[in-house]
Amino acid sequence: MSLLIGALSLGLILSLLALGVFMSFRVFGYADLTAEGSLTLGGAVAAVLLVAGWQPVAATLAGALAGALAGAFTGVLITRFNVARLLAGILTMTSLYSINLRIMAKSVIPLANERSLVSQSEHLGLRIFGAPAISIAGWTVTVRDLGLLILMVVFVALVAAVLLVFLRTNLGAALRATGENPQMMRALGTDDRLMVTFGLALSNGLVALSGALLAQYQGFADVQMGIGMLAWGLASVIIGEALVGSAPMGFTLTGAVMGSLLFRLMVALALRWGLNPNDLKLITAGIVLAAFLLPRAMESFRSKKRMPAHA
């Protein structure tokens, strides 16, 4: 039971990463490597501020803001200096590794004893349930885990709803259209360079928000925590698309969240059954690769079937 609750909480936290990757991968059509650095950046900024005694919500949002700045930087490299998109992401990601170390001043910042969203949700859980542990259908669950899950459900639902509403505003629609057809948006009077910069800021803001929450959830910020996270986000987005197919905006966003939850659940089960945690990133990469290859394999299989074999 606590395995399930833990997987759901973590899945929800990482669904913000998935939403961020969704923004760059599906809206702008490429996977932005900045995400690997900005996830850590979000965790690092939030951790340092929490240690300094900031309000957990404020520290978390500050982490997200820092990520947005990193994304905007990549956007400026791409749009003002004509750096290739992939290279711009690599440059920002690499610089962020040093910057994150500077911010943290060491490679790990423990948060277990700090006031954080986790400790606050523990209080919340205690207040709601009145005891440090309760039993659900015969399973004992700590109210800390439960409180955290509730908080994350509310948090992620809120962020996803705001994102969905935003993408349907004039500005949000312009952002999506720029990703698909920048020439059209220029002809309609919108500076596509500004839009790309803004979109990458939004994407990395979400990723960093995920990082800030992740650091609090796991009880420490780690300068390595972003490594491999882009593939993780991609896997979630792709699994989500497999779940909902090509559907209207609202469903694809929900799909990314569901993809993240499902993926985390599968991983938790696999770990439970003895998967070596060190193999996790290899498996994540494998899933992303399979998701890219499968549709093509299916296509060629189908066209082979259509063509009658020559005797």
């Binding site: 935003f166 349907r168 505003t169 004039n170 500005l171 309609l188 009077g189 919108t190």
Partner: peptide, 12 residues
Amino acid sequence: LRGQSRGLGKAL
């Protein structure tokens, strides 16, 4: 909204 600023109003 060609040539005009695009804000946070509902697109449709």
